[in-house]
């Protein structure tokens, strides 16, 4: 079995697949894509807010990943590296789509746009799964908060890895996350879930 010098140090479960894919193993490449495509798709969906756009972008991200794969030397975990490519691609696409997709909320007024208890019958509100509503609330947060929330909770990246992906100071990442948590708590209170 081929040895990967950086696999042990970073404890990367995908190291073996990455190394095989770098050597041109198509089966390993397919497996690597299967293992990570949902992460990229969810990140893209969280930023773009559109399933079709998210799938198109996921495809584009993996083509970029494949082009850059020979240069990947394992300085970070593969998923951290992939998230960096995906985040940059998503933010670039978002910028180009901003005029077409009218989903961007004004960051200053986003809290007002959250659903309130008067938005529907009380029975409907109660019938909805509370957790699902919480995840839906994330969609209404400003982009920078959605991004850190999905990277931390859904993609399971550490604070340090998020800082690396977003090229932000560690303190800024924690501050964004804490503001996002506060915002979600405030919106839970507003809709009367808690």
């Amino acid at each position: 079995m081929a040895t990967v010098p950086w696999a042990d140090t970073l404890n990367d479960p995908l190291a073996e697949l990455v190394e095989q894919a770098q050597r041109g193993d198509r089966v390993a490449l397919a497996e690597l894509i299967r293992e990570t495509q949902d992460r990229v798709y969810n990140l893209a969906y969280r930023i773009l807010g559109n399933a079709q756009e998210a799938e198109d972008l996921t495809q584009e991200v993996f083509v970029r990943m494949w082009r850059a794969l020979p240069r990947f030397r394992g300085d970070s975990k593969f998923t951290t590296w992939l998230h960096t490519i995906a985040t940059n691609a998503c933010l670039n696409r978002k910028r180009s789509l901003r005029r077409q997709l009218d989903t961007q909320l004004d960051a200053a007024n986003w809290l007002d746009a959250l659903p309130s208890a008067e938005d529907g019958p009380a029975e409907d509100l109660l019938a909805r799964d509370e957790r699902t509503r919480l995840w839906e609330m994330v969609e209404r947060l400003p982009e920078k908060y959605r991004l850190v929330l999905t990277l931390f909770y859904q993609q399971q990246l550490t604070y340090q890895e998020i800082a690396q992906v977003l090229t932000l100071p560690l303190g800024t990442v924690k501050a964004h996350l804490n503001r996002a948590r506060n915002a979600l708590a405030a919106s839970l209170e507003k809709v009367g879930i808690r």
């Binding site: 949902d38 969906y45 995840w135 708590a185 839970l188 879930i193």
Partner: peptide, 12 residues
């Protein structure tokens, strides 16, 4: 509640 809810956030 937010913390617990987000910790269960599944990948679609």
């Amino acid at each position: 509640y937010v913390e617990t809810g987000l910790s269960d956030w599944p990948l679609q």
